[in-house]
Structure formats: structure tokens, C-alpha cells
Design a protein around this nucleic acid. Structure first.
Lengths: 238, 238
DNA sequence: CGCTCATTTGAGGAACTTCAAGGTCAGTGG
DNA sequence: CCACTGACCTTGAAGTTCCTCAAATGAGCG
């Protein structure tokens, strides 16, 4: 895990907020809540933002009162926890279209921008009361929560596998979540990934190098990867 | 992880079902759903069981269609996953009063009795439509799902700590969940715990022995433990 | 008691971490 | 244009933790 120097961690909040949403906002929103106009209006009354965060900015602090759910419009958001020992664990990455932040009454994790990103805040109480009047909203919430459970449980399973398997699984999952593009452009830092996988950056790097040497993936440029052998990757993931 | 011999694993289903609930059923039900009579009636129309399972019986198979949620009345239930390699991971333990089984449309884990136990099956579709009519039910469901998320995320965090810390955390959490009794009577097998913590039984045993030698806990009889030094345990948990 | 099954203990090896150094790349200023 | 810088990633060697295998001990039960 990363041994982070808190003095350099940007806990100051450099986020700036715009009044009006971007086209992406509506698109991702519609994907999750459906494109019903009256529902959209009801929802937009509950939202704050979108707010923009630079990489490593803190979006919400661990232990803060959890008044809002978070909806990612752009970029990658991570939830993570710091130990007294100074180590960090990344619990989850959230991508555009993800709705999260279920812990109550306080956040149990710090929410941070893993890349420059754009996040919508949705008032929890308002969303819940809307859900009690509109079954569709209730279903969206339960589906989002179920997805979060499934992902966390998959993560637990991942953590008792070998380093190489963890890396292979992470890359494949990310490739799927990002839409199975030809090249996988890994958006977050290796440190973030290592902290997510419960490995050191060194072990992560060695695992990726291993995968490359075995011909399962290859590095194209900087952060772009090509997943060459999906069958072998699948076998590796177990 | 356990390398289980499938030929001896009791995949046959020895569960037997009684028509009428036990007093415990109502008590645990009321704790979760409140003791509203009309609500109780509506719920009881959706439930099947209670069903009784002996230790290691399978309650529901991985990949089965997830038609029901599960509600534990008595005993301990585990959710787990088997790999092709024959290893097993335990993802969660559920205690009396726990409502779980959110994955859709199929189960992604096998649900098994970790001790002799008593489980209620609640029709998912019925519960969801009840939730859309009754806000209280909707809140119960969201709360249960939130708890599940929190627990899974805690589990993820746990998996990147040392063996001794994992053992200490597990025992303390269990003690809390079981009501902070004077003695902690560990209900599940060491193999189950090891598979939950991502350790071997040997490492688990050594960790517990370590904790005992350091005076943090002591063994009373067979499965009963005394958590001696809660402060030191807390420090160990980090 | 003598069986079985669960847990403990020990010794050796594998996987991962740690520490330390080297390499790559983008941005910056001469 | 090129050297300089800092952030990030990679590689190597040594150390630690945990796993594996094997055997001993303990607990429950007919």
C-alpha cells in the first residue's frame, strides 16, 4: 500500500462548480434513470453541481455526514481509506454513469478524484422521498446498490488470488467497464491500482510485465494497453 | 483457501421444512421490519419456510435464478465461491436477523449453512412490489443493502492487512455482531474463518495462538474465547 | 478405549514486500 | 534544440510473511 505523505496530499478543495450541466450529464443520467422528462425535472431539483475536480482532489471526506449520493459524469473517482500507519487502500473506482455513496449516516471512506473528473451531488433525503413516490427511482436505487454489492464481493474474491491474477482481472474488468474499446487506456495511476489490488506498485509492475512477456497483453504507449489473448486472460482470472 | 474434496461436500439438500414459524422468526422479523401487524401479514404471504439446514448443507446454488431473498432466523449462513482449482473463498457470514441475497438475476455465490441453521425465503418480486407500496419496506431493503455494502467494503479493507490483524478484527467484529457477550463462542469452523480471511487454517491458528500469547485473548474451552484486552485488540485492528 | 475429525506445531519454500537504483516521459527554461 | 526537473514506472537483490507439506496433539463420540 502507498505510504502517502499527507503534507503533499491536496486536501484543500480546488473544485470549481458550474451552474449548468454539460451534455454528458443528461446522457449519463438518462442511461441510469431513463429519459423521462418529468422524472428528469424532479431529479434536477435535487442535484448540486456538476462540480469539477482535479486529479487527487478530495470530493468528500471520510467521516463527513453523508448528505449526498454521488453520480459520476466524467473521469474516474476512487473511494479509499487511510490507516494510522500511513498506508492507503482503494476500495472502489467509479466511472461515468455510476451512482454511489450509500453509507449512513457518515461516510466511511474518503471520496477522491482519481483523474480530473466531474461529479453530481444528489441530495439523499430528497432522492429517497422521490423513490417512495416513484417506483422507477426506487428500482434504480436498488439496482445501483445491488451493483455496488456485487462489485465489492468480486473485489473480496479477487483479494485472495495471486498478484498476476489480480492484475489480469483488473485490466480485463476495466476494459469491459470502459466499453471494450480496441485499446485499453488505463486512466488511473499504478499507485491507485496497486492500492486497489492490495499490492505494491513494484509487484503490480512485475505482474504486468509478466503478462506482457507471456503475450497476454502488450504495452502500446504510455498508458495504453492491448489485451491480446482474451482467452488466456480469462483462464488467468479463474 | 480450502482445497475441498467435492465428493464429500454435501451438495445433496437435506433441508427439511416446517409449516409454522418459531417464536424466533417473529422476533427477528420484528427487529428488522418493525412490529406492525398488517405489515407482518403482508410479509408472511411472501415467505416460504422457515427451512432448516444442517451444517454444510447448500441453501442455494451459485448460478441459480435468484427468486428469493434470504432471512436468517437461527445459526450462521455463509456465502462462498469455488474456483476450478478447488479452492474456496467465503465472502460473507450472515447471522440471525440478516436479510441478504441481492444479486440479480442469478446468484453469484453459493449460499450454505455454516452451522445448523434456520432460514426464511422471501419472494423477491413480491417484496419489491410491497416496497413500492410501503415506504417502510423500501427503507428496510435499502438499509439492508447499505449494510451489505458497508460490510463487503470493510472486508476488502481487511484483506490487505496482516494475518494477525485479520484474525483480531474478525474475532472482535464477530463478538460485536453476536451481542458483546462475556465469552465469544465462535460458531463457525476454522476452515470457514480462514477462507473468509484469505488465509490457511495453519496461518489462522498461528495468528490466534499469537494473540493468546500476547495476552489479547484467551481460550476458555473448545470454541469459546475471552477477549481480554479490547484496547490492544483495537490497536491491532488499526 | 480407539476411532475420526479438527486444530496445532514445525521446517522448508514460494510469493510478495522492502529498499535502492535506474529508466522514461512531459513540461520548463536556457 | 537540448539539458534539467519531477513524477511515474521498472528492475534488481535481500528480507518477511504466508503457504505447503508432514507430523503430532487434542476433542468428541460410539
Amino acid at each position: 500500500m502507498a505510504n502517502l505523505d499527507f503534507s503533499t496530499t491536496p486536501f484543500a478543495d480546488f473544485a470549481y462548480t458550474k451552474i449548468f450541466g454539460t451534455p454528458d450529464t443528461a446522457a449519463h443520467f438518462a442511461k441510469v434513470f431513463g429519459d423521462n422528462a418529468s422524472l428528469q425535472r424532479a431529479l434536477s431539483a435535487l442535484q448540486r453541481g456538476p462540480a469539477y475536480f482535479y486529479r487527487d482532489n478530495v470530493i468528500a471526506f471520510d467521516e463527513d455526514v453523508a448528505e449526498h449520493l454521488f453520480f459520476v459524469i466524467k473521469g474516474v473517482v476512487r473511494s479509499c481509506k487511510f490507516c494510522k500507519s500511513g498506508t492507503r487502500s482503494v476500495v472502489s473506482f467509479y466511472l461515468p454513469g455510476d451512482l454511489f455513496g450509500w453509507s449512513e449516516p457518515k461516510l466511511s471512506l474518503s471520496i477522491e478524484a482519481a483523474t480530473d473528473s466531474e461529479v453530481l451531488f444528489i441530495k439523499r433525503s430528497g432522492l429517497l422521498s422521490l423513490a417512495s413516490r416513484d417506483v422507477r427511482v426506487a428500482n434504480v436505487l436498488l439496482t445501483a446498490a445491488s451493483n455496488e454489492i456485487a462489485r465489492a464481493q468480486e473485489h473480496v474474491l479477487l483479494m485472495s488470488k495471486s498478484a498476476k491474477c489480480r492484475a489480469a482481472t483488473f485490466l480485463t474488468d476495466l476494459w469491459v467497464r470502459l466499453g471494450k474499446a480496441k485499446y485499453l487506456d488505463v486512466p488511473m495511476s499504478h499507485q491507485d491500482i496497486a492500492d486497489y489490488l492490495g499490492l505494491t506498485i513494484e509487484t503490480l509492475s512485475r505482474s504486468i510485465t509478466d503478462l506482457e512477456r507471456s503475450g497476454l497483453i502488450s504495452r502500446v504507449t504510455g498508458r495504453a494497453l492491448l489485451l491480446r489473448n482474451h482467452f488466456a486472460l480469462g483462464r488467468m482470472m479463474n
